[in-house]
């Protein structure tokens, strides 16, 4: 019989492969803050922009929600993480900014420096 530790290690491996099958290894991972504070600051709209972009064919992107990192006055925040590059953190993202992040950063690899935290 397996010990609890052995079982949890198996569960972890399964969890990792499920995450990967959802596209975790895409070139870019996008995290949108979705806690009470972020949502109050308008992050649902922002999430919608990214979800729509993905459903309309934006590929090679892994989209995930996340809790609050604690940077209240710059919310909503969005991170774009790419292996081998310094993670990009955007603050005060609204619908318009999200649309531009999709166009300029996610599609064309251009970091929008003015909005960095």
């Amino acid at each position: 019989m397996l010990t609890p530790l052995e079982i949890i290690k198996k569960k972890r491996a399964e969890a990792v492969s499920r995450i990967i099958s959802k596209g975790y290894l895409s070139t870019k991972r996008v995290y949108v803050g979705m806690a009470t504070c972020e949502i109050a600051a308008g992050s649902k709209e922002v999430m919608d922009v990214f979800t729509e972009a993905v459903s309309k064919g934006l590929t090679d992107v892994y989209l995930s929600q996340k809790g609050c990192a604690g940077r209240c006055n710059l919310e909503p925040t969005v991170e774009v993480v790419e292996e081998g590059k310094i993670p990009v953190k955007y603050g005060k993202v609204n619908k318009e900014r999200a649309l531009e992040i999709v166009d300029r950063h996610l599609k064309n690899g251009q970091v929008i420096k003015e909005w960095l935290i």
Binding site: K11, A15, I19, Q65, K66
Partner: peptide, 16 residues
């Protein structure tokens, strides 16, 4: 430690 880096509604993130 995990706040702001995992999806809180996905147990797989926590397990990983």
């Amino acid at each position: 430690r995990n706040c702001g880096i995992i999806d809180p509604e996905n147990i797989d993130d926590y397990l990983s």
